[in-house]
Write a protein that binds this DNA or RNA. Structure first.
Lengths: 123, 123, 123, 123
DNA sequence: GTGGTCTAGACCACC
DNA sequence: GTGGTCTAGACCACA
């Protein structure tokens, strides 16, 4: 359901948060749907439950999830708006990486070419 | 001379290493030139000298810098080749960020648009 | 510096958050001051460092603390305002306990008497 | 009949226990009376029946309730004494909240004022 | 079974 | 030394 890159400098819990927001942005998850259980997601991502729990806790604080004790976690009604805000973050993070790539000597052509390559690999 | 993003999850010393390699890739720094002094660079980046020292130490191990007693570090003769190798890293890191942006719900169009925007801002 | 009640149903990290806000409200800690170190506070409270870390992390998100990697945590400039907001929470939590005591059959007289007693013990 | 605060850190079943003891302390429920049915109370409190069942089970152990096969629970003869003992708990919990409010920076005046306000709202 | 809290202890990045 | 992240595993409250 989600993909995590353990070797990335981006914290796993941030990747999980971004991933869930992405699923909502893309419509694969809708307000009112059940979010994956903390334990189940942790198992499928091969990650410690505490790490997923931290992501869920922060998402609850942000109003993206409604977590109930003893119950399932539901995608909040406002999740779409929250996720839309998250898109700005993703965009900024991406732009930042692009800028850093430039500083490393990659030309804009290189960058565009890389994007194009990815587009072919994962359409 | 270099730009550092303290709020990025990418370690500062890695950003410094990438930045110096970039300067060589782009020809703004050539083998035989003096690298900026650790203290001076640390001051201009508003970063702890130890952090710059770590970057320089690792660059020396990689054969990118020749650090001499007395404090002056010179860009090594093989620096261009080392920097060229670093380009692969930069490209990979960038591709990774693009992939993550996709997972967050950004469309390829969004990404291309962001690249285009950056291109206008920092040609 | 702070007092924690491990037998209370209120989570320890919340007590720590409230305690720090209280120190600022009472002027014993001011914006710009160094907050106690996570490890040091954990040791003095005989609590796990992770528990204190969680409190500090949330306080940073709330804008009450400025935490820097490798450095000390500073009381933020806006801490007084944030702490003032926290007073409302404390008041609400207290009022809630008073209400619950009433439901348990305590009369208002009992409650006032208890407050008066505490006032004598800890002026 | 009872009031429950789901957002309180105090366990719901403890609130239910305290609430029933309170009804007896205040004389609204007397030894020999039928306690509300588990299902009915759960429905009116919008709480899981298991939660109410747990409260009743513990109250039976404490000798406050006589639960009989067939489902009817009766207020025990010794309930008044048990409830009186519970007052001490309520008092202690309340005193604890007051102490914590103090640590959060509330002055005794604030606290007394809050008590006075509550007295006006719920005489 | 679920989420929430806490402990114990590890490694990392940084000062 | 500091804060930040993560793991492993415990107990609790609840459905």
């Amino acid at each position: 359901m989600l993909e995590i890159d353990l070797s990335s400098p981006v914290p796993v819990y941030d990747q999980i948060k971004a991933g869930l927001k992405g699923l909502v942005s893309k419509g694969q998850l809708r307000p009112g749907d059940e979010a994956p259980s903390i334990r189940g997601l942790a198992a499928s991502l091969k990650v410690n439950p505490n790490t997923v729990a931290r992501a869920y806790r922060e998402l609850s604080i942000e109003g993206f999830l409604n977590s109930q004790r003893g119950g399932v976690s539901l995608i909040a009604d406002q999740a779409v708006q929250v996720a839309a805000g998250g898109l700005g973050d993703a965009r900024a993070a991406f732009a930042d990486a692009a800028r850093r790539a430039r500083r490393s000597g990659l030309s804009w052509d290189d960058i565009q070419r890389t994007v194009a390559t990815l587009l072919v690999e994962e359409p």
